[in-house]
């Protein structure tokens, strides 16, 4: 019998959104042949949380979902202590989702000093400094199930993942979400004229799309294997970034007509020069509905 990799899914201050996202993984049976949850808050598992906190149970990977505060307890023990205890024995730690990585939405919770494992938004947090080398960050609200599962397989197969400054695997986070959106043509020619949910128009200019400055694979590894937010007609809300959630997610913040946040690595002068050129032309095809005659 092949050995299954033992995984502990620890839920901190969280909405279980990543758990639900994970349940949509399409090859779950296969996954469960290769991995075993010693504990998971929703799936039946071998041990109770009480066993986990009172004994030292063998474990290979620690998954943390949700934001972290010393004040927050599970089975009467501070989540920080549980993490400390298991982090020593595991091979890798994975922060699952934006809350566990950067604090995310639950950074606003009432608990004292709530943050991600190593980051409070962009700032480094030193509590778990010694674990930096062991950690992989998978941000996203929620994280895409394939990103999670493929990372776990990489760990199982001892593949070294190259990571970015926030410890996110470049394989999934070196791209911007803008990459692969079906609206790229509209972006190029600066045509927004979008109505939410419709196929036409790029939402960067007026409707708040953050994809050009958000790292992730949403338009490369589609959701439920069929679609992405931006393809479907909803702006990317930047859920993989330390700044998530920003305010006013459905409109583009501008300073005298210039978007406050520009595509990653594009300086203002370059952006405006290009914008000036493309704005000069009107492409009729892009102003029309795609299917109406």
């Amino acid at each position: 019998m092949k050995t299954k990799m033992k995984v502990l899914w620890l839920s901190a201050i969280s909405c279980n959104g990543n758990t639900h996202s994970f349940f949509n993984y399409s090859q779950m049976e296969q996954f469960l042949e290769d991995f075993e949850f010693i504990y998971h808050p929703v799936i039946d598992s071998k041990y109770l949380l009480q066993d986990i906190v009172s004994q030292d149970i063998e474990c290979d990977v620690l998954l943390i979902e949700g934001a972290i505060s010393k004040e927050f307890k599970r089975a009467d023990l501070s989540i920080v202590d549980i993490i400390q205890r298991y982090s020593k024995r595991v091979k890798k730690i994975v922060t699952v989702g934006t809350c566990a990585t950067f604090g995310g939405i639950f950074r606003e919770s009432g608990y004292e000093k709530t943050s991600g494992l190593h980051f409070d938004q962009e700032k480094r947090v030193d509590t778990f400094k010694s674990l930096l080398d062991k950690t992989i960050s998978l941000s996203g609200c929620p994280v895409h199930p394939e990103v999670l599962v493929n990372t776990l397989y990489a760990i199982k197969k001892d593949i070294t993942l190259k990571v970015d400054e926030f410890l996110r695997p470049k394989e999934f986070y070196a791209y911007t979400v803008h990459n692969g959106c079906t609206r790229n043509e509209y972006f190029e020619y600066k045509v927004d004229n979008h109505n939410f949910g419709e196929l036409e128009g790029c939402m960067f200019y007026d409707h708040g799309c953050q994809a050009p400055f958000t790292h992730g694979s949403c338009n490369k590894i589609l959701w439920n294997e069929v679609n992405s937010k931006t393809r479907a007609g909803l702006p990317c809300m930047g859920c993989t970034e330390p700044s998530f959630p920003r305010q006013n997610l459905f409109s583009t913040k501008k300073n005298m007509a210039i978007p406050e946040h520009l595509p990653v690595g594009v300086n203002k002068r370059v952006y405006l020069t290009l914008a000036g050129i493309t704005k000069a032309f009107k492409i009729d095809r892009l102003e029309k509905k795609l299917f109406d005659d």
């Binding site: 005298m256 210039i258 002068r269 020069t273 000036g276 704005k279 032309f281």
Partner: peptide, 17 residues
Amino acid sequence: GMLCVNEFVTEIMIYFE
């Protein structure tokens, strides 16, 4: 459009922005 005055308009935009 403003194609031929792009450099000038770009800088004015930056001043405003």
